[in-house]
Structures are given as structure tokens and as C-alpha cells.
Amino acid sequence: MTRITLETKVLSENDRIAADLRARFRQHGVLCLNFISSPGAGKTLLLERTLAGFAPTDRVAVLTGDIQTDNDATRLARAGFPVRQITTGGTCHLDARMIDRALADWRLEDLDLLLIENVGNLVCPASYDLGEAAKIVVLSVTEGEDKPLKYPTTFFKSSLLVLNKIDLLPYVPFQLEAAKENARRVHPDMEMVEVSCTSGEGMDTWRDWLSRRRKAAQSTAA
């Protein structure tokens, strides 16, 4: 019997494609963000409201992943920016190859912001690097405030926590401070913004975060 030491990453093929995508994004000064949440936390509406705040000349595009339907792409395309639906046909997450394929005929030199809406799922997307500059996790106040403790990997790997639907706080038992404390337990220096996509509250803080990251991405472009 022979034992061969391999020490290879199980997702080495995904990581290789993701590293290639990340290098291309950096080369063209494109800020790529990967939005993760459970189904129904409000990723699509957050993106719709975010797109609505851009000027028509802004160089923005969206990839949106779902297991079935192109409903989200139809909603997002109303803003007038390039949008492409990735229908995974059963797969519960996006992987780097899907992103690579979806971008095939888009010119990265024409973009400086690429927003990727992952499949609604707080578990599997955390394992797949898409070449993004940052993961953003969206948690809505109609969920449990212990979600960061139940899904620590996603919250640990995400740079920003968007606490969404805060207009509903008076009507739900959600403890905002407890949720933030739970997020800090798994990720002590996690950045957080509180927003309501329906009332618009907090959206300026989110847009400020986004424009800071866009400026940083452009200044480090090769």
C-alpha cells in the first residue's frame, strides 16, 4: 500500500478561474461585489434601488443568479444597465466558471462596477470564490437575529453586513443590536449599514460605502 500526499484544494479549479477573474477586474479597475443572503432578504430590491441611484453614464453591470426563472433580470434591467441572468438549473450557488462564461462577450474596459447577486442561500455561496473584491451579506429584520451565529462562515467571509427592511422594526421582534453583536462575534471588524429599500432610509450610507470602494478600486487599477 502506498500513500501519496496530495495537499490540493478540492475547489482548485474554481479558485484558479476566480484568481484569473480577480486579476482581470483589477487590471480594468472594475469593483466586483458578490451579494449573498437567504431567499427573500431583499438582494434584488437593494440592487434595483442602487441602480436607480446611478447616472445613465455610470459604467455598471449586474449578473444575477437563480435556480430557475429570469424574473430578477427582468426587474433589474428596467434601470437600463446591462443585466444578465445566470440560471443554475438546480445548483444552489454561483461558481467562478459561471461568472467567466456570463462575462464572455462583455468588455471589462467598459465597466467599473460589477454587481453579482448570488443564489439565495447562506451556506454554499461562501465556499465559492467568484473573483469578487468583497462579499456583502444581506440580512433582513424579518429573519432571526441569530443568523450570523447559525451561518458563521458567510458572515466571517463578508466584508459588509447590510441590515435590510429596517422600516419593519416596529412590527417585528427582531433585536437590531443583538444581530449586530452576533455579527461582531463571528467577524469583529465587520462593517455594517442599516437600510430600508422601501422607505430609502440608510441608503445614503450604503451608497457612500459603495462609492468609497469604487474609488479605491479605480485607484489601484493596473
Binding site: 502506498t2 500513500r3 500526499t5 496530495l6 495537499e7 490540493t8 484544494k9 478540492v10 475547489l11
Partner: peptide
């Protein structure tokens, strides 16, 4: 998340 080793019978 790594493949650490493979044992085989030569």
C-alpha cells in the same frame, strides 16, 4: 477544503 492524500495498491 483539501484533498490530503490518496492511498493506493501499486
Amino acid at each position: 477544503l483539501e484533498v490530503a492524500y490518496l492511498e493506493l495498491e501499486e
